[in-house]
Amino acid sequence: MCKDDSLNHGIALSQDGRTLYGSSTSNVYAWDYDASQGRNTSNARDIVQAMGDTEGHTTRTLLLSKKVPDLLLVSRGSQGNIDLETLDVTTGVSTIKAFNISNVTNSAYNHASDGLLLGWGLRNSVGVAEEPVSGGVYSVENSVDNLNRSGQTIHENNPGEEMNFHGYLNGTKSSNQGGNYGYPSCFAAWNVTQIPDFSGTTGTQFAIGDQNATVNDTFCQNDRIAPRITFAAHMAPLDIKFNPNGTASWVTMHGSWNREEPIGYKLVFVQFDGNGSPTASANSSTAAVDIVSNPDLSACPSNCFRPVGLAWDSQGRLFMSSDSTGEIYVVTKDDGTGVADVQQASSNRSSPSSTGSGSAPSSTAGGANRAVRKWSAGRGSYWVAGAAVVGALPLI
């Protein structure tokens, strides 16, 4: 085992537990791995290369498909807030691609020219997951900052963050697969009343800046793929994990950095139908139910937790990391058991007062009434609500 400061976000482990994958800004590597030792046992092998330099969004999320185990998904974001290079799909920027890791020989894949394209026009899809029942691939997207439309600044509540559907890896046909999702020209509406000269609904694509003959709302709605679910602007979704039975996805919202009123800083629950699709309509503004959140967003980002990564353990408990506080939390039911079987969630809590006190009404989850508990950890008192989640404890 050796230290490599170039490695950053992406990590994946083969189903047999013998191969570990990791990413730097420019490459994806593989190592032989020994789980009994908890370490790699070989030098790094290049799997994918030529993914750019250290500008812009530098994370390279990795996901190994369980439906098609030979395919490794790689998500690469843009090199800036508005990156015109992404207008050319051959650059490989702002894409999600899949690479057949069983075919790698002496030469690594070139990211831009090789691989199966699942989607492009994706500004920064840090969270990627495979729905376990249908095998559909979903991502969660960090949208653009400081957006202007028709000469007006509308970035406080637009555009929305996105949950996008990218088709399947097992050969099932989907019109979404390989399509363009809009960036850097088209974006999803969140607060439609604040978008000048716009008549669409939440989730509808609209054109950035001043509409013209080439880029306009009609083009965005007819030629670009709209998100399956839209979240509020600046929530910054960073990870998505599905229940094993496909009845829900859990999404971490890292939180805003340039919004007048902070937003996000929580874990949310999005209900699915168990057959591969969210239960909420594409124009819903209530699809995401708060599960774990900070009580006082005015303290964010410097004095609150900021969710990032999610992971399941063998008992169905959900682990959640916070980069701002250096903590890991475990999310469970009130009896300490896992939440992997939760099918419904309701967020029915009162807001705590500025002193951290407040009433905690009951909430319904999975058909059972469970009390919402207040818990304290790290830098302050937080609240857990809904989805049968009434306990979350810091591990470190």
Rank of each mutant, 00 (worst) to 15 (best):
G160P: 05
P244C: 14
N191R: 12
Q211G: 14
N243W: 03
N158E: 12
N245Q: 13
N191K: 13
A189H: 00
A188F: 04
T201P: 00
T172D: 11
V192Y: 06
N158D: 08
E161H: 06
D217E: 14
F242N: 10
Q177P: 01
N243T: 15
T202P: 02
G167L: 07
D239G: 08
S150L: 10
T218S: 11
P244V: 02
T218E: 12
D197M: 12
W190E: 09
F198A: 05
T201D: 15
L169G: 10
W190C: 04
E161Y: 01
G178H: 12
T193R: 09
N180H: 13
N157F: 08
Q194E: 15
I240F: 10
Q152Y: 13
D197P: 08
T204L: 01
S150H: 14
N243H: 07
Q177I: 06
S185D: 12
N243M: 03
K241T: 12
I225T: 01
H155P: 00
T202Q: 14
P244D: 10
G171M: 06
S199P: 01
F198I: 02
A213Q: 07
T204Q: 05
K241H: 14
S175M: 11
M235L: 12
D239A: 15
M235C: 04
I229V: 15
W190A: 11
G246T: 07
A188L: 08
I225R: 03
V192T: 15
C220H: 06
E156Q: 15
N191V: 08
A236D: 13
G200W: 01
S249E: 13
P237F: 04
T214C: 09
T202W: 00
A233D: 10
T202N: 09
N164R: 15
F219R: 05
I195E: 11
G151P: 03
F206A: 00
S150P: 05
P159E: 09
T230W: 00
S249L: 07
F231V: 03
P244R: 08
Y183D: 09
V215W: 14
K173A: 15
K173G: 06
A232G: 15
I240S: 04
T172E: 15
G203A: 06
G203L: 02
G179R: 12
K241P: 05
T218W: 09
N245W: 04
A233H: 04
N158A: 10
Y183K: 08
G182H: 03
L169C: 02
A226D: 07
I229K: 02
G178N: 05
H155C: 02
R224W: 06
N157T: 15
L238F: 08
E162A: 01
A236W: 00
C220E: 05
T230L: 00
K173P: 05
D210Y: 15
A236F: 02
N164E: 09
F198V: 06
I240R: 07
Q205T: 05
P184A: 11
G178C: 07
W190I: 03
F187N: 01
N180G: 04
C220M: 06
S185W: 12
H234Y: 04
G200T: 00
Q152N: 12
T202K: 12
S174N: 11
I225W: 02
V215H: 05
L169I: 01
V192R: 04
G182P: 00
T247D: 13
S174E: 03
I240M: 13
